[in-house]
Nucleic acid binder design. Structure first.
Lengths: 215, 215
DNA sequence: TAGATTGTTAATCGATTAACAATC
DNA sequence: TAGATTGTTAATCGATTAACAATC
């Protein structure tokens, strides 16, 4: 059933977490069965797209019945890799770094925060939810000694690429970057850039488009 | 020159902030002239796409020369609406709300934070960078009295839609939502949903795809 | 069985890329 | 002028939607 030879497009991959979230909500509401048509109504994709997307990974449904919510939720969790732990560190323990450290949702989904790093002596030694802020000088040693897989970059623009390079040299596998800079990584390293300002500026564009409708 | 009748696609709009950021970097490096070919090299879009994108809004370049960086930066700023102020409030003064309040970049680009709101009595009355945390009971009054245009939602999942409804009823024009819930708004309201977990789960998908290459 | 709904192929739509005439 | 590079049209590519046979 699984199309192992077909490469799944990024468009599909980026929709998977949304399916995952909506299925979790359905389970919380004790809904255990859903058709693509009904899911379409609540998630906002077409039923056709939902069936196409899911069929990239396998035939999870049943003709005449629809999808088993719990089973589909688990399958998508597996596809997303949310079935194991990812040892993580945060670099940059300012407000954003601390906010992410406090966001327990990520830890619950497997991203276990093992340490935070900063250059500011006033922050070094403090703890955020049992996680200590260490001197960034110890970054490489800590990553190697603790088999850290994921680095979360919350340093300023000017230090972003340098920090990424150090992480990669120390053996990290993936980077979640919040600095407003498109970090460049080698092919074998996974990078996910989050640009909050791009989202905000899209909002301001749309605010003005509404004020000056073109048609 | 401007195609007023042609609707600009969201794909193009979402690339504009990235042009804006790279042009700002060029200006900081005192580079005042750039061709689509050279910009392509540093930003990663094709030169053809860059010219297509810009031409949705006007002919900003000059044949044989390229683009004037400063002029193009200003023009894109205008298109994005970054030429005026947006009075804003944050609802939810926990870690994420505080992190955003402290992110002075947004304030510098025009998003002026006028107040924060929370239900937690321990937070009410505190100040984050001169901005006071108020009781969420005063939300509607404050928005009306201060002509607030933008609401930044940092409340938990369960309160997200309710908070949005209150903001809209009080007269807000746009919402920047960080709660893990797709807020529904009427057509005349602009919504920008930021889903950090969707970004993180894409990272975990890619981490495993790399470990198990399919081809 | 009849009805419902999937899995999957084919058709459509939109976005990206290529090409080149216009022009600085 | 010759060279460079845009603006813009046409071609290609990929993603979405529609349709329907398969099947529970």
């Amino acid at each position: 059933m699984q199309r192992t030879s077909q490469k799944v497009s990024m468009a599909v991959i980026r929709r998977l977490p949304k399916y995952y979230r909506y299925l979790e909500n359905l389970l919380n509401k004790e809904i255990y069965r859903i058709s693509s048509k009904e899911l379409s109504r609540i998630i906002g994709f077409t039923a056709s797209q939902i069936r196409q997307d899911l069929n990239c990974f396998g035939g999870f449904g049943q003709q005449g019945y629809g999808y088993n919510v719990e089973e589909l939720y688990k399958e998508i969790g597996k596809i997303l890799g949310l079935v194991r732990e990812y040892k993580s560190v945060i670099i940059g323990a300012g407000n954003l770094g601390q906010a992410i450290a406090n966001y327990s949702d990520f830890q619950r989904k497997g991203f276990k925060l093992k340490a935070m790093f900063d250059i500011n002596p006033k922050l070094i030694g403090l703890k955020i939810r049992d996680v200590e802020i260490l001197d960034v000088d110890n970054l490489e040693d800590f990553i190697k000694e603790n088999d850290i897989e994921v680095g979360i970059i919350c340093v300023p623009f000017s230090k972003a690429q340098e920090t990424a390079d150090r992480l990669i040299a120390a053996g990290i596998k993936g980077i979640w970057n919040f600095a407003p800079f498109d970090i460049k990584v080698p092919d074998n390293i996974v990078i996910e850039n989050v640009h909050l300002s791009e989202s905000l500026f899209t909002l301001s564009y749309l605010l003005n488009e509404y004020n000056n409708p073109e048609d």
